[in-house]
Amino acid sequence: MYEQPKVAVHAQRRASARAHNSNAHGPASTPGAGAVPHASPLTGHLAALVSATEAVRQAAESPEQRAELDAALAGLHARLAALAPAGAVPAQTTGGVIGRPGGSRLAMAHEHAHALAGRLLVVAAAQQDTVTAMLACRRMDAHAAARSAL
């Protein structure tokens, strides 16, 4: 008598478990359930990067740098609005970058923004959010290039 391999059953169970854990089961997909809107884990990281990018923009001296940072801020704000339900965007910190002796304020701001973009990339990859991961990569590249140009 032939017995079906148990591996196939196990694989089928794993596939159905993955389908069950999809992102389609969030509060946005259950209207009227009395769910309180919540922010995704990415929104806090995005808000921190927005704040750091604004600090870099304030420290930037040339109009070209400010124009690039304005475009970056527009993209970050758009992604934050897309991820966060209305009213669920975390408060942004306005803490400045603490300078070290011998370091410029702009260089420190770029370094801080680069680190925050790296954290955003890690969280976006864990959440399998390709759009946010690509945005974080672009910001990391821009801050690294600006930091090395100083």
Score class of each variant (00 low, 15 high):
A33H: 09
Q128I: 00
A47E: 06
G118P: 02
H110D: 02
Q127F: 08
A88C: 01
H38V: 14
A35G: 13
A48K: 13
A60E: 07
V122S: 09
P37K: 06
A11I: 01
E61F: 03
P63T: 07
A72R: 15
R138F: 08
R66C: 01
A71F: 01
T132P: 07
A39S: 14
Q4Y: 09
A52L: 06
A115S: 09
E61K: 12
R138I: 01
G99A: 12
A136S: 10
A74I: 04
I98G: 02
G26E: 10
M134E: 11
H20W: 06
V50F: 06
A59E: 12
M1P: 01
A86E: 13
P85W: 00
A82S: 08
A47N: 02
H20C: 00
G75F: 03
A72V: 10
T130E: 13
S16T: 15
S29K: 03
A39W: 13
L121Q: 10
H45P: 03
S40C: 07
P27K: 04
V50H: 08
V56H: 09
R18Q: 12
V131C: 01
S51N: 08
H114D: 09
P90R: 05
H10S: 04
A109E: 13
A71K: 15
E68C: 03
E68S: 09
A86C: 05
T93L: 05
Q58T: 12
L121G: 05
H114P: 02
A124S: 14
V9M: 03
A149T: 06
S148G: 00
A28M: 08
A109T: 00
L49D: 02
A146C: 04
A11C: 04
Q65P: 00
R14W: 02
A91G: 10
A125H: 09
V56I: 07
A81T: 13
G102R: 13
A24T: 07
T93H: 12
D129E: 13
M108N: 12
H114L: 11
A28E: 15
A84W: 05
V7Q: 06
R13V: 15
L76V: 04
A144N: 05
P101M: 12
V131D: 12
G32R: 04
P63C: 00
D70R: 11
H45W: 06
M1K: 05
H38K: 13
A33Q: 10
P37C: 04
V131I: 03
H20T: 04
A67Y: 01
V122R: 15
H114F: 14
A117G: 06
L150A: 15
A124K: 02
A142Y: 14
P85E: 04
L80I: 04
L49M: 05
A71E: 15
L76E: 01
A126H: 14
L121E: 10
A144I: 00
G102F: 15
A142C: 03
M1D: 08
A84Y: 08
I98K: 04
A125F: 03
T132S: 14
Q58M: 05
G95K: 12
S148M: 14
Q127K: 07
T30S: 09
T132V: 14
T94A: 11
A124M: 05
H20P: 00
A145R: 14
Q127E: 15
A78Y: 01
C137F: 11
L106F: 03
